[in-house]
Computed example of a mutant assay.
Amino acid sequence: MNISSLIMFDEFERYIRQYEPGLTREQMQLIRSKSVLKKVRRRQVLLHEGEVCQHKIFVLRGLLRTYGTANDGSEYVMKFTPEYEWITDPDSYFNRTPSELNIDAIEASDVVLWSHDDFEALRTVIPEINTLSEKLITQNMGVTQKRILLNISANAEEKYQYFIATYPDILRRVPLHMVASYLGVSRETLTRIRQGQAVAAKS
């Protein structure tokens, strides 16, 4: 690894030791040996619809987006992934089936990649990685369930309020049309909500 890559992985090591402080130096060296550090350009695609998802992805810097494409060509955003979060297409990754989603970079990003085979091997030989993986799966299930509940029970304004309360940093970094897509509302509806809130705040 060059100096830049070493610094990037050292940053990842500090992150993972917050959750698994008992990892030995030998275990971290094994994790390091299986990882690929990558600089991603803005709008660069990491997963194309129709491909089998090959990687677990950890974002060190930047912002990724997971989205699908409707029959009419419109995009619907499934997830935003900022710094210190993980992303993959779990169905395609675990079942080795073609993905129905795309993953690209909203901003220039630094990411750490592990291939499917390498990450699954790490889970086998390092119990702490398996524990962390299970925690992440449970966490993602909770987030997904909350989003489904909001989509069923909340109106557009309530969904927007939840988004800005939960993801204030992402709101500042993402174009409005992508936020609208994530919320499942039109850009015009979201604009009206924002304007109404601005007027209410001034009164």
Rank of each mutant, 00 (worst) to 15 (best):
M1C: 09
I3A: 13
I3G: 07
S5C: 10
S5N: 15
L6E: 14
I7Q: 12
D10A: 12
E11P: 02
F12Q: 05
F12N: 01
Y15N: 15
Y15F: 15
Y15C: 13
I16Q: 08
Q18P: 01
Q18K: 10
Y19C: 01
E20A: 11
L23F: 06
R25A: 15
R25H: 12
Q29T: 08
I31R: 03
R32V: 04
S33M: 07
L37Y: 02
L37H: 02
R42S: 11
Q44Y: 03
V45Y: 05
L47E: 00
H48M: 08
E49Y: 01
V52N: 11
V52T: 13
C53L: 03
H55V: 07
I57P: 00
I57G: 00
F58T: 00
L60D: 10
Y67V: 04
G68K: 01
N71Y: 12
D72P: 05
D72I: 11
S74R: 14
S74Q: 13
E75Q: 15
K79A: 04
K79R: 10
P82G: 12
E83N: 13
Y84K: 15
Y84S: 14
E85Y: 09
E85A: 08
W86H: 01
T88P: 00
T88L: 15
D89N: 03
P90L: 12
S92C: 00
Y93L: 15
F94T: 14
P98G: 07
S99F: 03
S99V: 06
L101G: 00
N102M: 00
D104T: 06
A105G: 11
A105Y: 05
E107R: 06
E107M: 12
L113I: 11
W114N: 00
W114P: 01
W114T: 02
W114R: 01
S115Q: 14
S115E: 14
D117C: 05
L122R: 03
T124D: 13
T124V: 08
V125H: 07
I126G: 11
L132E: 03
L132Y: 15
S133E: 14
E134P: 03
K135N: 05
L136Q: 04
T138Q: 12
N140H: 14
V143K: 09
T144R: 13
Q145H: 09
K146C: 07
R147P: 02
R147Y: 07
L149R: 15
L149I: 09
L150A: 04
A156L: 08
E157V: 04
E158P: 01
K159C: 08
Q161Y: 00
I164Q: 05
T166C: 03
Y167S: 10
D169Y: 13
I170T: 12
L171K: 11
P175M: 06
L176I: 11
M178P: 03
V179L: 06
A180C: 06
S181L: 01
Y182D: 03
L183M: 07
L183H: 03
S186D: 05
S186F: 02
T189Y: 06
L190V: 07
T191D: 10
R192Q: 09
R194T: 02
Q195L: 11
Q197H: 14
V199C: 02
A200C: 05
S203Y: 10
S203I: 15
